[in-house]
Design a protein around this nucleic acid. Sequence first.
DNA 1: AGAAAAATACCCTAATCAGGGTATTGTATC
DNA 2: GATACAATACCCTGATTAGGGTATTTTTCT
Lengths: 222, 222
Amino acid sequence: MSISLEKNRSTVNTISVMIVEDDKRTREMHVATLNGVEDVDCVGAYESAEDAFKGLAKDIPTVLLMDIGLPGMSGIEAVRKIKEEYPTIEILMLTVYDDDEKIFNSICAGASGYILKNAKKDELIESIRGILHGAPMSPLIARRLLNLIREKTTPQEELLTLSPRERKILELLVEGLSEKKIGEKLFISPLTVHTHIKNIYAKLHVHSRAAAISKAVKNKLL
Amino acid sequence: MSISLEKNRSTVNTISVMIVEDDKRTREMHVATLNGVEDVDCVGAYESAEDAFKGLAKDIPTVLLMDIGLPGMSGIEAVRKIKEEYPTIEILMLTVYDDDEKIFNSICAGASGYILKNAKKDELIESIRGILHGAPMSPLIARRLLNLIREKTTPQEELLTLSPRERKILELLVEGLSEKKIGEKLFISPLTVHTHIKNIYAKLHVHSRAAAISKAVKNKLL
DNA sequence: AGAAAAATACCCTAATCAGGGTATTGTATC
DNA sequence: GATACAATACCCTGATTAGGGTATTTTTCT
């Protein structure tokens, strides 16, 4: 009976975890932490994304702990590839730096959660359990993510100094129209369009259509 | 002694809350809930954003509960204006619908958190306390937000058909570099760059740099 | 080893753009 | 009624781009 119970624990209710982390000490510490928990099973510990791919061919874990700053293929790149091939794996990013930009990019790449490397044992285990129950990040990180989204979607000053006509023309530039087409669309001379565009460049401090468009799209998104 | 303790509670540690919600029943229910908690003080309950602005001229609450679907000025619009004038107020959005797009837009407008209208009493109180301690949303909503970000930033099919070199060149186009500059940067002939760009246009089904850039930026942001 | 994909390089021409001007008209705002 | 700004229109020139080719080398995958 006790055997069947034991078997149950390790096959049915066990969370299998794989870790990818280049720093040996950190890696081994986490492996020890994981194996110290009854219903968690560490099925692999690798020092690079490349090695992890080999490991994934054998074992597909429930949760993958991924260092964000790996040598060779970066953790973010790795997430993208792993999620493509094994979309069901929940990926939890590990990092020493709490770099907002990296949090954001990891999430875009497909990471489900995020935890600081210096997290305590309990926090690590709780994050792993949390990710499986829809709680993908610590409250603090959630707050930072909100701020980041807000920044990324707030138009900048520069765009606000444009006159209504200039904004309209910039909008059409973004759609990919030529000066001639814009003139036709707005019933004005292409030469006038040209003048407006020159003024737009001056206000946005750019010297090419390309730069103007990417600035416009990046700064108001949506 | 007990008096000074009481005073402490209601002036130093009290969380002042204002609510803006057009549905009378819901509004009064929440007011009752709030006033049922010792260290929470409801300083105003309004049925429209316009009324709330008048209220804000008198009392500035710590936390503002804002219905997302108000008649007149929408909750999202209201958040934008309120945050502009009173940036320290923490705003918690209330809604019956769990509309991903609205969550996202509220956050962009400046909301710090989000709670469903049918939340239980305890959940409401916990969300209010949570927002003040950096926990801006329920785990479930955090998860949905992640998915939403991912969707919004996932490149489309077309961008994925580009070769690595083509992607790199597109990236430099987005930065506003000319063909010549790109050639210099990548140590290849500008003629080669030209060839790559032609291939990029073909794959993206566009016929101008402008269209390519706006497609690139819109489809992967960043 | 051989096929396929990617990256490289070049030629050509018409079209478009960038940036430097100047100038007129209407509409606010003070 | 003066000043400021937005919108309109034009001239000019050199630089850049778009789109049509062809062709070789390198990488990658089988």
